[in-house]
């Protein structure tokens, strides 16, 4: 598209009356050509902003894709934990942990579905060895962390190994 053609189309462009293909070509030209942009900005100052905003989103595309796919898996783990299998898993974990570390999982509370640790327990704890539990062929890794000062308190962290770095 030449500058002359674009100048002729500018009024229809501003009035939102161009057909999508003509509009796309005009917009492409306007984004690239400062002289034509000055002409449209005089008619409609809002284009001084709209046509000059960076075209790319900030941040790396692949990192974003990885974050979304990680989010999907995280949701799946959470859903699995909300299902009835958690009871089985909690029971198995309690047995294994009691056997390995001689501590007890406090019963009755809601299971920790994410890796959130209680702030009071965090500074003093050291992760126990991970215990790997198979659930219907899909692996879930379970960590149990205890506070040496109070072995009655334990935090169980369930992680989908696919999410681990």
């Amino acid at each position: 598209m030449t500058c002359e053609e674009v100048r002729e189309l500018i009024p229809a462009f501003v009035a939102l009356e161009l057909e999508p293909e003509a509009e796309r070509l005009t917009r492409e030209h306007l984004t690239a050509c400062a002289a034509c942009r000055a002409a449209i900005e005089e008619l409609e100052p809002a284009y001084a902003l709209a046509l000059r905003l960076p075209a790319d989103a900030e941040g790396d595309a692949e990192a974003f894709v990885a974050a979304v796919m990680g989010g999907l898996r995280q949701r799946r783990v959470e859903r699995r934990l909300r299902g009835g299998r958690w009871r089985w898993l909690a029971a198995a974990a309690a047995v294994v942990i009691a056997f390995l570390a001689g501590t007890q999982v406090r019963r009755g509370g809601e299971p920790a579905a994410t890796a959130a640790l209680s702030p009071t327990a965090a500074p003093a704890v050291r992760p126990a060895e991970g215990t790997f539990v198979e659930v219907e062929g899909k692996g879930i890794r379970l960590y149990q962390i205890t506070d040496p000062a109070d072995p009655g308190v334990a935090v169980a962290v369930v992680v989908d190994p696919a999410l681990e770095l």
Partner: peptide
């Protein structure tokens, strides 16, 4: 296949 869809459309959606 879904990751490919994310890759294709992420720029516009994020912007």
């Amino acid at each position: 296949a879904f990751a490919e869809l994310v890759r294709r459309h992420q720029a516009g959606v994020r912007r």
